[in-house]
C-alpha cells in the first residue's frame, strides 16, 4: 500500500530559528493520525509546509503520488489537501453560507468535470453548517460568531473542499465537553466515509479517543511515531511533556 501523504526530510527555518528539522512522516489512505507536541514545537508550521501556505526550504512532500513542492496552496487544495487554520481565518465580509461557498466554487466545482449546480451548492452549504450546528446563522457574518463557533466554521470550510486528507489544526480548543464529543463524532464519520484525517490537538482525551496512530513533535523534531498507547508511555515523550 502506498502512502497518501509522504513527508520526507522536511526542514523549515524562520531566520536563524529552525522550526522544522528533517521531519519524516507517512500517512496511509483512510488513516486517523494524531499529531501532538508542546506549544511552539512546529505542528502548525508542518501543516503550512504540507499545504503550501509556507515553502519548506528542505525536503519534499508527496501527496497522492504527486510531488507537491513548487505547487501553490490552491493547487494542493484542488488535489485533495485541506486544512483548518489554528487561528480561524473566516472571510469577514461574507455570510457563513458564502464562506463555505468559496471552496465549493473553486475546489469542488470542476473536480469531476461537470460544474456544480447552484442549487446543489446551496444545499451542500446548509448541510455542512448543520453538521457543525451553525445552520441558524447561515446568513450572518462571521463577526456575529463566538470564538467557538468560529472554530466550527473553520472546520466546516475545510470540509467543504471535499478533501482526501483533512488536517484539523486544534479545531477543539475552547470547546465544551459535549461539543468536543460532537466534533469527534463528526470527524469519525468523515473518516468512515473514506477521508484521511490528521488531528492536531492538545486535548489528550480527544486525541487518544480518535487516533489510530500518534506522532509527536518536539522542537521541530519528530521524537515518536506509533500506537497511541505505546507513544504516551515512551520515556522521551514523557520527558518532553513533564520535563518542561
Amino acid at each position: 500500500m502506498t502512502a497518501l501523504l509522504s513527508v520526507q526530510n522536511v526542514g523549515k527555518r524562520f531566520g536563524g530559528f529552525v522550526a522544522l528539522d528533517g521531519i519524516n512522516l507517512e500517512v496511509q489512505p483512510g488513516e486517523r493520525l494524531g499529531l501532538i507536541g508542546p506549544n511552539g514545537s512546529g505542528k502548525s508550521t508542518l501543516v503550512n509546509c504540507i499545504c503550501g501556505t509556507l515553502r519548506n526550504e528542505q525536503g519534499s512532500v508527496h501527496f497522492d503520488g504527486q510531488l507537491m513542492n513548487g505547487l501553490a496552496a490552491h493547487e494542493r487544495t484542488h488535489r485533495g489537501l485541506s486544512r483548518s487554520f489554528q487561528l480561524p481565518r473566516p472571510f469577514p465580509s461574507l455570510t457563513l453560507a458564502d464562506n463555505l461557498r468559496i471552496p465549493m466554487l473553486y475546489t469542488v466545482h470542476h473536480r469531476n468535470g461537470t460544474p456544480l449546480h447552484a442549487d446543489n451548492i446551496d444545499a451542500r452549504c446548509h448541510e455542512l453548517l448543520q453538521m457543525v450546528d451553525l445552520e441558524k446563522k447561515a446568513r450572518h457574518l462571521p463577526r456575529d460568531l463566538t470564538q467557538v463557533e468560529m472554530r466550527k466554521l473553520e472546520l466546516a470550510r475545510a470540509m467543504a473542499a471535499e478533501p482526501k486528507l483533512l488536517i484539523a489544526d486544534e479545531a477543539m480548543a475552547g470547546l465544551s465537553h459535549s461539543e468536543i464529543e460532537d466534533i469527534l463524532a463528526l470527524l469519525m464519520r468523515l473518516n468512515e466515509s473514506g477521508i484521511t484525517v490528521i488531528m492536531i490537538e492538545h486535548i489528550m482525551t480527544a486525541v487518544m479517543a480518535f487516533s489510530q496512530r500518534l506522532a509527536v513533535l518536539v522542537s521541530g523534531k519528530k521524537i515518536a511515531d506509533g500506537k497511541p498507547e505505546d507513544v504516551v508511555r515512551d520515556p522521551d515523550v514523557v520527558r518532553a511533556y513533564l520535563g518542561e
Binding site: 496552496a73 490552491h74 473566516p90 472571510f91 461574507l94 473553486y106 475546489t107 466545482h109 470550510r157
Partner: peptide, 25 residues
C-alpha cells in the same frame, strides 16, 4: 459570478482564499 466570490475571498483573506482553492494570482 464565481469570479466575484473569488475576488471577495481575496479581499478578505488571501491565505484563506488560497487554502480554499482560489487561484489568487
Amino acid at each position: 459570478s464565481r469570479l466575484g466570490y473569488g475576488f471577495a475571498a481575496i479581499r478578505d483573506d488571501e491565505l484563506a482564499a488560497e487554502a480554499s482553492g482560489v487561484p489568487t494570482l
